[in-house]
Design a protein around this nucleic acid. Structure first.
Lengths: 180, 180
DNA sequence: GGCTACATGTAAGCGGTTACATGATTTA
DNA sequence: TAAATCATGTAACCGCTTACATGTAGCC
């Protein structure tokens, strides 16, 4: 796939950033749907630089500390736009350990199965509340900037996903209890 | 993680299987939440055999063709049960290329963004219909066997996920059209 | 005889994580 | 002055995919 490449180009198409700042963005705004550690980011930035898709200028912080501020090149912007416009035709089914566990839960007691479902429900309830709080900070969607609006849409998807997870888990608990 | 190990142990805890049969199960019943190719399965079966968690007997099909029928050992069953009972405390956020694309869609025209959302909606509508049809074959849930009941629960999760995806995408399209 | 499904393996390479490694800057 | 954060890299390893590689069995 090589999708990390486009995530980096996407960030740099908005503004120039250091590798460190990019890695912070993966921990905050993008963490809901993409992640990357610095150990993956720095080599990728090097590769993109060698491919002339990005370039950097060394800046000095304080007295001696050097940091590389990356910016996108025209070639990089073109490649990014090509990706940004492309159709994504395949649905990737993500791996889910809890669902695997539930699928094989005929091996454990019905009581324990309900306990596992309830623990999972608590987890998703908490995360749902966290995301709902986060999205509430956006305010009126009609006055959002283009990129804030995009961020709002993907955030909403997370909230809805957590809501569906909770309703599914509740329904499973109900069905399991009925069988007791 | 090493989750593949438990998927294999789980299947073999139900019945003895060949590597080929296991790989077919990943393509049918488990494909909604876990996948593995034969090139990953065969080495893993070898490793589990070396660890005395499973064992195999060679069976002859036809005249000469040898196949290895694997079954779980007592040690394997214990390790499987330990996993099957354990709490899964971390929510793993799966990578999602479409959401990444949408997040960076401030780089493309609003019209093209709507097109991409609509194509995605078509994809999920189709898959939703496919899963709904598949789950309809289960019949009365009160009369299901334990393992069919488990299968039903995880299948339902897939149906609900596709439904939430569709409603999210529709909402995004609505919001984007409003902005035009 | 030819096609599809059955059946089992290995090798190269990619994407990603964890750990190793170092050092400067800022803030309490 | 100690701790947290800023800042950049490399190495080993794991999980997984794609491709390579081989051969049998059953069916039309």
């Amino acid at each position: 796939m090589g999708t990390l490449k486009y995530a980096l180009l996407g960030m740099l198409s908005r503004k120039s950033l250091t590798g460190y700042e990019i890695s912070k963005q993966f921990e905050s705004s993008l963490c809901e749907f993409w992640q990357a550690k610095h150990s993956q980011i720095y080599p990728e930035l090097k590769a993109l630089t060698n491919a002339d898709l990005i370039e950097f200028k060394v800046q000095i912080s304080g007295n001696v500390m050097e940091k590389k501020v990356y910016s996108i090149t025209e070639k990089g912007r073109q490649e990014f736009l090509q990706w940004a416009e492309k159709d994504i035709t395949a649905l990737t089914v993500p791996k889910d350990e809890f669902r695997l566990q539930l699928y094989f839960s005929d091996g454990i007691t019905p009581k324990r199965r309900i306990e596992l479902l309830q623990k999972q429900l608590e987890l998703h309830k908490k995360y749902s509340a966290y995301l709902t709080e986060k999205i509430a900070g956006f305010g009126d969607i009609d006055t959002l900037s283009e990129d804030d609006f995009c961020n709002y849409m993907v955030m909403q998807s997370g909230v809805l996903r957590e809501q569906y997870m909770c309703s599914w888990l509740k329904n499973c608990i109900r069905m399991c209890k009925k069988k007791l």
